[in-house]
Structure formats: structure tokens, C-alpha cells
């Protein structure tokens, strides 16, 4: 973090050097390693399978990782302040099935979306209050709420998949705008929005400061507790949006929606360069991490890699991507 800020503006630098500086600034950022890995993987896949670099394949792959990316951008706020949110998979599921329930019971799209967002807000608020105001460990609290929210998913669905949503809710998950799937658009919008929040708004600066050194932030008078509650609400909301879109895309709200996704969401953020120690990361890292896993999954199936080997390859590529980042970081040590 501090590296980037220091290099951001060099007073009186000649104009022709700005591009170079921008490049160097990016190269030093934690996203560079993952971006390199994604690009490398895409180049390899382009040569390996002639179906990879087709418009259909790329947009559907982007759609398939957009849900994780959206939730991961929220998770990234929590991780930046040094917390963790394990309940995100359950929040995704609960928000999704609440929207599915409302929509399949004849409520319009707006009440369904509001219902899902309400689930995200309330669950985030509960996590945030217990952690910031209750002084409980984030890992424990969200482990507990993971199970509580999942239980609500079973109560809402009764174990039965719910279908028959209103057309405009389905459009959010399945529709296209200028040839790009709606979930991808929504991912991009939040990417821009949350990047702005992190880089330009006080909340972002506070979050980095708290993650960097919580005690120092508290002593310098930052509203630490309020920021913490807020980041969990953001994580809950982003999880809810991801879950809502996932359910809308599949056209079915079932009780396993989002089950186990917390691992993918947190992995996406961390692979992209969000530091689990706190104080470092960006919305872009979350998208990149999700993209790496998404493209990899797509490639493994396109190439027909055997079912028993797929998990091995995914694990190896993740470790490789992170080590590219370590090598890059070492250059500055």
C-alpha cells in the first residue's frame, strides 16, 4: 500500500515518464502477479484449444465467475480491516432463496431484490455488531452465523427447489445488455464503485489504516467500531447481490445455493492479492482472483482434463500464481 502511494506522484516528473511510472506503480502493486498469471493462462489456453478464445466461451466464463467476484469484492473490505467473513456462502444462499421465494410467490422483482438486499444488510449488521461491539473473534462469529443462516435457507425452501420467477428477475441473471451478460455488467459496476470507495472515500482510507494497525487507528481517533460494522454490512450486501444473481441465473432457488462458496470467495480475494494480515488489497484483486479460478475451471473442462486430476491442477496453479507474486515482491525487498 505505502509503496503505491509514495510513487503515485513524483513532483515535477517529466511528462514522457508518467506512463513508465504508472506501469512501475502497477508492477509494484499486489495485483500484478495475478494479472500476469491470468494473462499467461489465457494465452496457453488459446493455443491449446481453438474454442477458448471465442466470444461465447469468454462471456459465459465471465458470467460463471462474476457471482464469486461480486461476493469477493465485499469480502475484500472485511479482509482489509483484518477480519474474515466465513458466513458469505450462507448469506448468498439465503439472499438467493428469499428472492426466489418472493418472486415465485407472485411478488414483483423490486420486492424480491429488496428482500435479498435486506438479508445481506441484516446478516452483515449482525456479524459486524457481534464482532465490533461484542468484541468477539470474527472467525468464531461468522462460523456461527454460517450455520445459522444456512439453517434459515432450509427453513425457507423446505428442501424443495423453487422455480417460476418473474421474467425481470430472471433477466438480471440470464439477460444480456449489448451482448454482455447482466451479471458481468453488475460486477463491473461494483468494481468501479468499490474501487472509488476504497481509493477516494474516507471509509476506504479508514479501512486500510485499521487493517494496517488497529491500535494506532484507534488512538488517532478513527471510528474503528463503526468502520468495522460497515465493512461487514458491505460484505453481507455484496454476498447477497452475488447470491441473488446466482439464483436468478440458474432460475431455481434451492437449499444448496452457495453452499461452501465461502472458500471460493475468500480464496478469490486472497489469490488476487488481498493480504489476510489486513491493510492491503483492492476490488480489482478480488475480480482477478475470481477470474483466475474461473478461467482455470473453464480450461480444464475444455481440455477434457480427467475428473480426478482437476482439483490437483487447480491447487497447483493457485500456488504458482501466488509464488509469481512473491518473486515480484522480492524484487523490491
Amino acid at each position: 500500500m505505502s509503496d503505491e502511494r509514495r510513487d503515485a506522484t513524483v513532483p515535477g516528473a517529466p511528462r514522457r515518464r508518467t506512463a513508465l511510472l504508472a506501469f512501475e506503480r502497477f508492477y509494484r502493486s499486489s495485483e500484478a502477479g495475478t494479472l500476469a498469471a491470468v494473462v499467461l493462462l489465457m494465452v496457453l489456453l488459446t493455443f491449446a484449444n481453438n474454442q477458448f478464445l471465442t466470444r461465447d466461451n469468454l462471456i459465459f466464463t465471465a458470467r460463471s465467475f462474476s457471482f464469486i467476484a461480486i461476493a469477493a469484492m465485499g469480502a475484500c473490505f472485511v479482509i482489509i480491516v483484518g477480519g474474515i467473513d466465513l458466513s458469505v456462502g450462507s448469506v448468498m444462499g439465503l439472499a438467493g432463496v428469499v428472492a426466489a421465494f418472493l418472486s415465485s410467490h407472485g411478488y414483483g422483482t423490486i420486492p424480491s431484490v429488496v428482500g435479498a438486499l435486506l438479508v445481506g444488510t441484516v446478516s452483515g449488521l449482525l456479524n459486524g455488531l457481534l464482532i465490533a461491539k461484542g468484541g468477539l473473534a470474527p472467525f468464531i462469529v461468522t462460523l456461527g452465523t454460517l450455520s445459522i443462516f444456512r439453517s434459515f435457507v432450509y427453513i425457507v425452501t423446505g428442501g424443495f427447489p423453487m422455480q417460476g420467477f418473474g421474467p425481470s428477475l430472471l433477466w438480471l441473471g440470464q439477460g444480456f445488455f449489448i451482448g454482455i451478460p447482466m451479471p458481468v455488467w453488475i460486477m463491473v459496476v461494483f468494481w468501479i464503485l468499490l474501487t472509488f470507495v476504497l481509493r477516494r472515500m474516507r471509509l476506504g482510507w479508514y479501512a486500510y489504516s485499521i487493517g494496517g494497525n488497529e491500535e494506532a487507528a484507534r488512538l488517532s481517533g478513527l471510528p474503528v467500531d463503526r468502520v468495522k460494522v460497515l465493512v461487514y454490512v458491505i460484505a453481507g450486501l455484496m454476498g447477497a447481490i452475488g447470491g441473488l444473481l446466482l439464483v436468478a441465473r440458474l432460475g431455481v432457488g434451492e437449499s444448496t445455493a452457495g453452499l461452501g462458496y465461502e472458500l471460493n470467495v475468500i480464496a478469490a480475494a486472497v489469490i488476487g492479492g488481498v493480504s489476510l494480515k489486513g491493510g492491503q488489497g483492492s476490488a480489482f484483486s478480488a475480480v482477478l482472483g475470481a477470474a483466475l479460478i474461473g478461467v482455470l475451471n473453464n480450461g480444464l473442462v475444455l481440455l477434457g482434463v480427467g475428473e480426478y486430476l482437476q482439483q490437483l491442477v487447480i491447487g497447483a496453479v493457485i500456488i504458482l500464481a501466488v509464488s509469481i507474486d512473491r518473486i515480484r515482491a522480492k524484487n523490491f525487498a
Binding site: F60, L302, G304
Partner: peptide, 12 residues
């Protein structure tokens, strides 16, 4: 996982 199954079929 339903979402994974759809991607798997289409990608295959």
C-alpha cells in the same frame, strides 16, 4: 453443485 454442473456441460 448446480452452477458448476451447468458450466461443466456447456464447456465440455
Amino acid at each position: 453443485d448446480l452452477a458448476k454442473s451447468v458450466t461443466a456441460v456447456e464447456d465440455t
